[in-house]
């Protein structure tokens, strides 16, 4: 197990393996999303309160789930990179941030579209989840801005890793404070996703969508980390041999 992980962490090996893995992740992710979309849009029974409007959760909930998981991936990568000085872990953190920001953006937009008929307004500060997502987006922006501001890659890795870890400690506190604030806020309508007992015909497409989004995220993350690895290893022998096979040498 450990030797496998150790091998995976070596850049040339990762570069080769990831190329073979990415198409499978894309295919499996698309399959799950296709099933989830068709079943969710056409076969799941309409919600009693929200009617067909509830079908927005089939994209909103998976996007919100991935937006938070991406931060966890980023913080864990940052922690591993900082403690064990593993370069690949830093590359994972660097790749996860923009993807997490995109999924957070997606969760915000779909949440806002959901809110329009529910609350009669595009944005409701009284909803703790949407407000937390907005702050999560700001955290991603801060992380990416810090990374972009430091030219030296190794230094950018370590500085942004500290920020990611400080952010990870703060996220539960931010969520708690937003919840406390909205519990006092008058007239707040909480986003009701499902309720305690969700009909299986509603639930399974949702689970499929979450799985599909996770697989697509994994594929996108691998692709980005692959690019990162190639760029970071640009001065090494294996990259040279990869770009310029022996026969082609000038």
């Amino acid at each position: 197990m450990w030797s496998f992980l150790h091998k995976l962490a070596s850049p040339p090996h990762f570069y080769g393996i990831s190329a073979r893995m990415i198409p499978w992740f894309y295919a499996a992710g698309l399959l799950a999303v296709a099933y989830g979309s068709v079943a969710g849009l056409f076969y799941a029974p309409a919600d009693e309160e929200m009617n067909d409007g509830f079908r927005i959760i089939y994209v909103h909930v998976p996007a919100a789930f991935i937006s938070m998981s991406a931060y966890m991936v980023m913080a864990i990568g940052a922690g591993i990179g900082l403690i064990w000085r593993m370069k690949l872990a830093h590359a994972v953190a660097a790749g996860a941030a923009p993807l997490g920001a995109w999924f957070t953006f997606l969760a915000l937009i779909t949440g806002s579209i959901w809110g329009r008929p529910m609350w009669g307004t595009w944005w409701e500060w009284g909803d703790p989840r949407l407000t937390s997502e907005l702050l999560l987006l700001f955290l991603y922006f801060g992380y990416m801005a810090l990374r972009a501001a430091i030219d030296d890659t190794a230094k950018a890795d370590k500085a942004s890793a500290v920020l990611a870890l400080v952010g990870a400690v703060n996220i539960p506190i931010i969520h708690f404070s937003v919840e406390w604030w909205t519990s006092l806020h008058q007239g707040s309508t909480l986003l009701k996703s499902g309720g305690p007992a969700m009909h299986p015909d509603m639930l399974y497409p949702l689970l499929a969508m979450i799985l599909g989004f996770a697989l697509l995220f994994a594929a996108l993350l691998l692709a980005r980390v692959r690019t990162e690895v190639l760029h970071r290893e640009r001065r090494t022998r294996w990259v040279r041999d990869l770009i310029m096979p022996a026969g082609e040498a000038a």
């Binding site: 929200m50 079908r55 927005i56 909103h60 579209i113 959901w114």
Partner: peptide
């Protein structure tokens, strides 16, 4: 229903 635009735009 009346939520057509919302669902499809999402």
């Amino acid at each position: 229903g009346k939520y057509s635009a919302h669902v499809w735009s999402s």
